[in-house]
């Protein structure tokens, strides 16, 4: 029982990180219909830039904020330089560009920040918290708290702000949105910035637990992608659900079957979902974008 609680805590911890990445995939997918394969690199950039800002003498909160803003800016620049020229072009080409972009960002990070793993200190120090016999690291509480905050902020933005409504309108029907005066291209740029910020936040909040390095992006990016597919692409709530389920599933597999098979089990479940419910666990009827 104690072990089960511990496995679930671990699963929800990884799951929250997957959820943040899945949100990034979902946001870009909603605005472009494409998968942004550079999403994992935004995760990496958040961590390494954060460590760099710390080394310049910034306090932790400022470094976190600065890294998120800088990574978002990189996301925006990336979109303007590489994705915008394909505007109206098909998602397949956007995907290609993001794959190239991910290699580029990774190599740039290697040259700028070196090959060694980098350490970001825990946001708050102290012993782990005990709950139902399970130990919860303080950083895990930060992971959950910030994920929740990001999801709520995102939901509020989509629902109540003109900007959020414009983004939604663009994702539902880009042409019509443009006709009523929404800057559709700007919305795509914003979606890249937003998903880069979310990725950076995930990378920062997990860095104190695992350290970070120039090459941490691709593996975690795949997990986030799997989570987004599992939940249902294009739907933020589904993305979060997918992330949490994937995390817990992995943790239980590691706990009760074999840690070496946890990725495989996650993939098998993913394939099953794709066969039985191609729109994802929480996705509504498939919505074809025109």
């Amino acid at each position: 029982m104690e072990a089960l609680a511990q496995f679930i805590v671990a699963g929800l911890k990884s799951g929250a990180i997957y959820a943040l990445l899945a949100l990034g995939f979902t946001i870009v997918y909603a605005s472009t219909g494409a998968i942004n394969f550079a999403q994992g690199e935004f995760f990496m950039l958040g961590g390494v830039i954060g460590v760099w800002l710390l080394s310049l003498g910034m306090p932790i909160p400022l470094a976190v904020l600065g890294a998120i803003v800088l990574t978002a800016a990189i996301g925006v620049v990336f979109e303007i330089l590489a994705v915008r020229p394909i505007e109206g072009g098909d998602p397949l080409r956007i995907i290609m560009v993001t794959i190239g972009g991910s290699v580029l960002l990774r190599q740039l990070a290697l040259h700028a920040f070196g090959p060694d793993e980098l350490t970001f200190p825990a946001f708050t120090r102290g012993p782990s918290i005990r709950l139902l016999g399970a130990a919860i690291e303080r950083q895990t509480v930060w992971i959950w708290g910030l994920t929740l905050l990001a999801v709520l902020a995102l939901a509020a933005m989509y629902r109540y702000t003109g900007f959020g409504k414009a983004m939604r309108a663009t994702s539902i029907r880009s042409e019509a949105a443009r006709l009523v005066g929404i800057d559709a291209a700007g919305m795509v740029t914003a979606s890249f910035g937003l998903s880069a910020a979310l990725g950076a936040m995930a990378g920062l909040v997990v860095a104190p637990l695992t350290q970070t390095a120039f090459n941490v992006g691709s593996a975690i990016g795949l997990k986030g992608f799997a989570a987004a597919i599992l939940g249902g692409l294009g739907n933020p709530v589904a993305a979060v659900g997918g992330g949490l389920i994937l995390g817990v599933l992995e943790s239980l597999t590691a706990g009760y079957i074999d840690p070496l098979y946890k990725d495989a089990v996650a993939l098998v479940v993913l394939l099953l979902v794709l066969f039985i419910r191609p729109q994802g666990l929480f996705g509504g009827a498939a919505r074809e974008k025109v």
Binding site: I86, G89, R93, M96, G100, V103, Q107
Partner: peptide, 28 residues
């Protein structure tokens, strides 16, 4: 205009890919 844009897109994609390849490839 559309063709031009397409050309631009392809160019940028090729550039990015080429840059990525050189960055990766030129390490050795």
């Amino acid at each position: 205009g559309r063709d031009l844009r397409l050309l631009m897109a392809v160019l940028v994609a090729v550039l990015v890919a080429a840059l990525a390849v050189t960055m990766a490839g030129c390490t050795p």
